[in-house]
Computed example of a mutant assay.
Amino acid sequence: MARHTMTRDAQREREAVELEFDAEVIDEPTDVLVESNPVSGPIRVPRKAALGDTGIAVHPLALGGSVFGWTLSHEASFAVLDRFAGLGGELIDTADAYASGRSEQIIGAWLADRGLRDRMTVMTKAGRHPEHRGLSPRSLQGAVDASLERLRVERIDVLFFHGEDAEVPLEESLGAVDRLITAGKVRSIGASDFSPERLIEARVLAANGLPRFQTVTTAYNLMDRRGFEGAPELVAHAQGLAVLPYFALAGGFLGGGVRRRTDLRHDARGARLARHLGRRGHRVLAVLDDIAAEHGVTPATIAVAWLQSRPTVAAPVAGVSRPEQVDALLAAGSVQLQRSELVELDRASA
């Protein structure tokens, strides 16, 4: 395949961010006009992604908020959120357990300060906050009320169950959410890291009148495929669930900034990245480099575009540490990967 004249070394110097096909290309994006807002003027963004049957359609990339209030300060988080909104981003992912609630507080303060609540879709998770652990009706009620206060909103757009709770019957948890939906505090629900068996149980309960999961989030990327592909993917497809894969860039590895062990930091993140430094990891990075050079984008952009090409994926979730890194993530929605490029990526990452 012919490649752009940009050298692989030049491509590697670009910043790493933690960030049924037809015969030619994946569905061609259709631009959508986004109205003016305090951050930017009218802008055009790629096709929208539907979040199940929620009636919500958004730019196909979610900004992860796990670093807000943890590794990013209030001001730095605002700068990232400003860049995200200014470039057409609409979907923000957080959890009540992220930085013990500080992530939600920062997002809530930003929404209020910028006046963007009506344009942004906010997803949060309940079940792991120290004060509201588990999925009992009492915990869910307390968690939702606390999240609403921190986010400064009247309703949570998508509330995720943050992992399974073996001690609480799922029927009780869904019943509690049903009351929260009726009260107008929650619009829709999703499951985070649920097993296929638990999702099937949830669908049976939904058939009997309880709220139905519309979305599911799980770890999934070019380096971590086996955990999702197979039964989880089949169940998600059969149930029409919108998949929102987190760790979209394998902890930053797919951004291309780590090529050898001397590039690793001696911390927990470095240890996580080290497991990808093998033949398979280098093979994936080489293909990402080539395809990125062809399209004139970064390897991170191609890694996210690959996820967006998957039949069940609605919007990958990725976080950044600096505002300028947002560009590569959102750019993926405008990349048209050819069938041959998808085959290359599939083979390299198999």
Results as ranks from 00 to 15, higher is better:
residue 53 D to W: 05
residue 349 S to L: 09
residue 29 P to G: 09
residue 327 D to Y: 04
residue 180 L to F: 07
residue 177 V to R: 05
residue 149 E to H: 06
residue 205 L to R: 06
residue 291 I to F: 12
residue 321 S to Q: 15
residue 343 V to A: 14
residue 119 R to M: 01
residue 223 M to P: 13
residue 324 E to P: 03
residue 76 A to L: 04
residue 195 S to D: 10
residue 243 V to M: 12
residue 309 S to A: 15
residue 278 G to M: 12
residue 276 H to K: 15
residue 331 A to Q: 07
residue 126 A to N: 13
residue 68 F to I: 03
residue 16 A to R: 11
residue 69 G to Y: 07
residue 337 L to Y: 07
residue 12 R to Q: 13
residue 45 V to L: 00
residue 111 L to T: 00
residue 20 E to W: 08
residue 209 G to E: 11
residue 51 L to G: 05
residue 4 H to T: 14
residue 211 P to V: 09
residue 148 L to A: 00
residue 240 G to S: 06
residue 109 A to W: 02
residue 145 D to K: 01
residue 144 V to Y: 03
residue 178 D to I: 06
residue 315 A to F: 02
residue 176 A to E: 06
residue 251 G to N: 12
residue 75 E to M: 03
residue 192 S to F: 11
residue 260 R to V: 08
residue 169 P to L: 02
residue 306 W to I: 08
residue 255 G to C: 10
residue 182 T to G: 09
residue 156 I to M: 05
residue 342 L to P: 07
residue 2 A to C: 07
residue 342 L to K: 05
residue 186 V to Q: 02
residue 20 E to M: 09
residue 239 Q to M: 09
residue 145 D to F: 00
residue 245 P to L: 14
residue 276 H to L: 15
residue 92 I to G: 00
residue 157 D to P: 02
residue 303 A to M: 10
residue 154 E to H: 05
residue 78 F to K: 03
residue 164 E to K: 08
residue 229 E to V: 15
residue 291 I to M: 10
residue 173 S to E: 09
residue 279 R to A: 14
residue 326 V to H: 04
residue 167 E to D: 13
residue 12 R to A: 15
